[in-house]
Design a protein around this nucleic acid. Structure first.
Length: 597
RNA sequence: GGUCUCGUAGCUCAGUUGGAUAGAGCAACAGCCUUCUAAGCUGUGGGUCGUGGGUUCGACUCCCGCCGGGAUCACCA
């Protein structure tokens, strides 16, 4: 049983014995003691004053006295202004580290017998442009959240839904037909997704200039947009695609093929993967039958032109279109269909959509619509809504090419990592291949940590001019700490010092060592909280705190040169355990850690 | 206009379900490598937590108003 629960129980017991009043032990708040006070855990006495009818100091003192007498793991306490600070004995911490040394996956919950699955849908790219920094945030978040849920013992399915059809891809196709001269990735030496993206931008530029021309000829802006020959030709292309026109389908397949190859490369570089990939060209017809059924039941309304609507005004939203007058489906229709499909296909406990907060309204509506249609699992849908990545000049706009390209960014990071490493001469002793692997590890570590350390819900800023740091609160800092520990353990081995599997529980500890132990102790609850909140940021902030603390310890105390063998052994175990936790935590973020850097 | 969000040091971000004197990193300045990796460590300066009320023993945290930024309210996805 963990010490906080023991304290909770005993406090409830103390209240009962001292003041003849029954309270629920889980309602007792046990917090970490602030750095500037002596103690490990703090209990605030104020909530008990009504029960004790005494001053805060008296109440805290009486409870403290009771705890000393009844919990052997507590060595002493102090009271400051109604705050009861509890000091846990060295013996407890030493027993704790011995215990976790015996387990291999400390901090993780074993997969339960529960066969229910959690589906995490993320990435979900459009096939008309390459991935950019916004997609990076999405992918890293989705992947990491899936890993964190696995660490919480959940049965997770990672899913991608590729938006491979629609007006946007037709724009790239039309531009390729008109101005492409048969260009292919091979003929141009361009990565497939980039090539298709270039045609998308080309389309947009030509379209804009056509609109400009029309406006100068007296068209209103709206009319110009609707009547431009380019947009009309694009719509024709879409119609042909929907009709299954062979030529159009062939171009579509070819160009999407280029894009997939490009995406796969980027995914691989980022280290994200999926258990299943769906394509909207297969699923975009889903949902129609459900909507028609809803009409029949009178849950949905049909307008005069034949379009189908749902009225969400009671829920504070508006009326929402579910089927066009011509019977074709819209975004919402498809999402209804795919949701139903997923719940048929999997035994779903929770379905998580990792999608930007610009679609909050859509997912709010989606869950209401499904609920009204009678699917009681609509409450199990969860929109993991993350904030936008903004540039100093505002949002990224892919049509205008004002984006930070994913591949470029990663490549630049690798370049920087290589430069810094060479400058510091850190990898002089290793093979070129090994060094190259480490540069990539560091570059991705920096990028992933930079993104994941921020609370997913919040918008974040990325300034390309101030490239991502490698010092301070960064991925490389944490990786460096790991490498340092590995180095110490290597040296120990060279000196034939064996790290013992357990340690004498009478060993005397210093304050820094206890601080590190306390952080290691917190790891499981951080994993749990991160799972509950779907927040890799909690893991990132935790592991930073741990490494910061470790670096201070490393600086202030020597390990291998420590003369007292018991203390030396303890420090080795402590270091090894810290490195294990660092590696696990970083693993949950998708960040690898090097043994040398 | 409706709905939803965000506002913490010059900049980027933390701040557990309300708890003690609001913390890190970067940037600036000053120190520390014959000692287990200096991608490190130590110190200094830097704040009316947007603002005004309210609830509370106690508010960065909860409630209301206002100011400022963002998103969304498409027969786009």
């Amino acid at each position: 049983m963990n010490i906080e629960n023991i304290i909770r129980d005993k406090i409830a017991e103390a209240i009962q014995n001292l003041y003849q009043h029954t309270i629920d032990s889980i309602s007792v708040q046990v917090a970490k003691t602030k750095k500037e006070f002596e103690g490990d855990f703090t209990v605030v006495a104020f909530p008990f004053l009504k029960i004790s009818k005494k001053t805060p100091e008296q109440t805290a003192g009486e409870i403290g006295e009771y705890l000393i007498g009844n919990i052997k793991e507590i060595s002493r306490y102090n009271v400051i202004k109604g705050f009861l600070n509890i000091v846990v004995s060295n013996g407890y911490w030493l027993t704790f580290i011995n215990e976790i040394n015996a387990v291999t996956d400390y901090g993780y919950n074993k997969p339960g017998k529960n066969k229910k699955q959690i589906v995490v849908e993320y990435s979900s790219p459009n096939t008309n442009k390459p991935l950019h920094l916004g997609h990076i945030r999405n992918n890293l978040l989705g992947w990491s959240v899936a890993e964190i849920l696995k660490a919480n013992g959940k049965n997770v399915v990672k899913v991608n839904l590729v938006n491979d059809r629609g007006i946007h891809i037709c724009k790239s196709m039309l531009a390729w037909q008109k101005w492409g001269n048969g260009a292919t990735p091979q003929s141009t030496g361009t990565k497939g997704d980039k090539l298709v993206g270039d045609f998308y931008v080309k389309f947009d530029n030509e379209y804009k200039s056509e609109i400009g021309n029309l406006i100068s000829k007296g068209f209103s802006e709206d009319d110009a947009k609707k009547n431009a020959s380019l947009i009309i030709a694009t719509q024709e292309l879409l119609k042909k695609w929907e009709a299954g026109d062979d030529e159009v389908r062939d171009i579509w397949k070819m160009m999407n093929g280029w894009v997939y190859k490009g995406f796969d490369e980027t995914y691989k570089k980022m280290g994200v993967d999926f258990d299943r990939t769906y394509y909207e060209s297969d699923t975009y017809q889903l949902g129609k039958a459900i909507v028609l059924e809803g009409l029949k039941k009178g849950i949905l309304q049909k307008k005069d032109d034949g379009s189908a609507w749902i009225d969400l005004t009671q829920d504070g939203l508006d009326e929402k279109l579910l089927l066009r007058a011509d019977g074709t489906s819209v975004y919402m229709t498809q999402d209804i269909g795919t949701a139903v499909q997923r719940f048929n296909e999997f035994n779903i406990d929770k379905h998580i959509y990792v999608v930007g907060n610009e679609q909050n309204y859509h997912f709010h509506a989606l869950s209401l619509v499904l609920n009204k249609l009678g699917y009681n699992w609509s409450k199990d849908l969860y929109h993991l809504s993350y904030g936008m990545v903004e540039l100093p000049e505002g949002r990224m706009k892919s049509r205008e090419g004002a984006v930070v390209d994913a591949d470029d960014l990663i490549d630049e990071m690798i370049l920087t990592a290589r430069e810094i490493s060479k400058e510091l001469g850190k990898l002089d002793g290793v093979t070129a291949e090994e060094a190259e692997k480490t540069y990539k590890m560091i570059a991705l570590g920096a990028l992933k940590y930079f993104i994941l350390k921020v609370d997913p819900k919040k918008n974040m800023l990325f300034d390309p001019k101030e490239s991502i740091d490698f010092n301070g609160n960064t991925g490389p800092f944490i990786q460096y700490t790991y490498a340092r520990i590995c180095s110490v353990l290597r040296k120990a081995k060279e000196q034939n010092i064996v790290v013992p599997s357990s340690i004498d529980t009478e060993t005397i500890l210093n304050g820094k060592e206890i601080e590190i132990l306390k952080l290691i102790y917190e790891f499981p609850s951080v994993v749990k909280e991160a799972g509950k909140e779907y927040s890799p940021a909690l893991i990132a902030n935790f592991v930073y705190e741990l490494t910061k603390e470790y670096n201070q310890f490393y600086h202030d105390f020597s390990i291998l040169k420590e003369e007292n063998p018991k203390i030396r052994d303890f420090r080795l175990i402590l270091s090894k355990t810290a490195s294990r936790v660092i590696k696990s935590a970083m693993g949950l973020l998708g960040i690898e850690v090097p043994e040398k850097m």
